[in-house]
């Protein structure tokens, strides 16, 4: 090979200097895509038609009640209880994860037991347990600090918060534990070698890096929470499902009000999905050489490339 190049006369121009012509080829036709698109469109049309022409659905009721103040208040409570329960879950989850990984066998077993119980029983059952606590403990007596009737303490709101939050903590603990374990041991060693204490190493070095692993499943947990919160219907907390069902049964528009509820659940989960995308992007910082573009940036780049092609 090398002697062949050597034999070439020195004055021939190097080939690379001639830019090759841009390829203009006829693209492969994907007939399968057209066929499947037609089939899907036809099925969607049938489905829409079935619902739209169903005489028993009063579509006007859906529109009327969508922004009804009771419904809006219910949606607000769904959001509120989901956010608060999630906060309880995350905070307690982090604590449980650290306890579970601690060298102290007592704390580690306490955490193990907590997770075992709260993951091993259905949330619905846990909610009912909180709701009916007054049956076995009519008084809440915390010695000199606090004393009150259990039914006054365990309001529907408290039942919902404890039921959802404590259950979530067990799941969050496992997510956080996986995140903490995913951080390279060399990071802890480097921090210790610099004279950082255990706690500071955890706070400044390990947890921030674990976040990249923790955030995506936590987002999913929150989306699940928005939906699972409909179970607190059972403890008479007046969230979205309960609010819409109450209207539904009094106005004989059961299905319509379930549609209203579905629309609001979809709105909330969709908005949060977008939010989650940006959150994940933020915590990816430093893990790769450059962050992936946001959808907006992608659109901008595409538009610019398009206008350049058109010579604008």
């Amino acid at each position: 090979m090398t002697d062949k190049i050597d034999k070439e006369p020195a004055d021939t121009p190097p080939r690379a200097s001639l830019a090759p012509e841009t390829i203009k080829a006829i693209p492969v036709r994907h007939y399968g895509r057209y066929v499947s698109a037609v089939i899907v469109l036809a099925l969607v049309a049938l489905l829409v038609n079935a619902f739209a022409t169903a005489e028993k659905i009063q579509w006007s009721a859906v529109g009327d009640k969508l922004f009804d103040s009771t419904v809006l208040a219910g949606a607000g409570r769904t959001l509120l209880i989901s956010v608060l329960a999630m906060i309880v879950g995350v905070v307690l989850g982090v604590v449980l994860a650290v306890m579970r990984l601690s060298k102290n066998p007592v704390t580690s077993w306490v955490a193990w037991f907590y997770i075992w119980f709260f993951r091993g029983t259905p949330v619905y059952v846990q909610l009912l347990l909180w709701f009916n606590l007054a049956l076995i403990f009519p008084m809440l007596n915390l010695g000199p600090i606090y004393k009150d009737e259990m039914t006054d303490v365990m309001t529907p709101f408290m039942c919902a918060l404890l039921g959802l939050g404590l259950n979530e903590a067990a799941y969050m603990a496992e997510i956080c534990r996986a995140g903490l374990l995913a951080v390279d041991e060399g990071q802890t060693e480097a921090a210790h070698a610099l004279g950082m204490s255990h706690g500071r190493t955890l706070r400044r070095i390990v947890i921030p890096q674990a976040m990249r692993v923790i955030v995506p499943p936590t987002g999913n947990e929150f989306i699940n929470m928005l939906k699972t919160s409909s179970l607190v219907y059972a403890v008479t907390y007046n969230e979205l499902l309960r609010a819409t069902s109450t209207i539904g049964s009094t106005s004989y528009a059961v299905m319509e009000m379930l549609f209203v509820a579905s629309i609001w659940y979809l709105v909330m989960t969709s908005v949060f999905s977008v939010f989650q995308y940006y959150l994940e992007r933020r915590f990816a910082r430093g893990s790769s050489r450059s962050l992936p573009p946001t959808p907006w940036q992608k659109i901008r780049v595409n538009l610019m490339a398009f206008s350049r092609e058109r010579g604008v």
Binding site: D184, G186, Q187, E189, A190, A191, H192, A193, L194, G195, M196, S197, I205, P208, Q209, R285, G286, S287
Partner: peptide, 20 residues
């Protein structure tokens, strides 16, 4: 930790903090 403050260590695989 107090003893380690005065001893610097450099690792084979650097172990820089990637989020900083």
């Amino acid at each position: 930790a107090l003893q380690r403050r005065d001893i610097g260590m450099v690792f084979q695989r650097f172990n820089l903090f990637p989020h900083m």
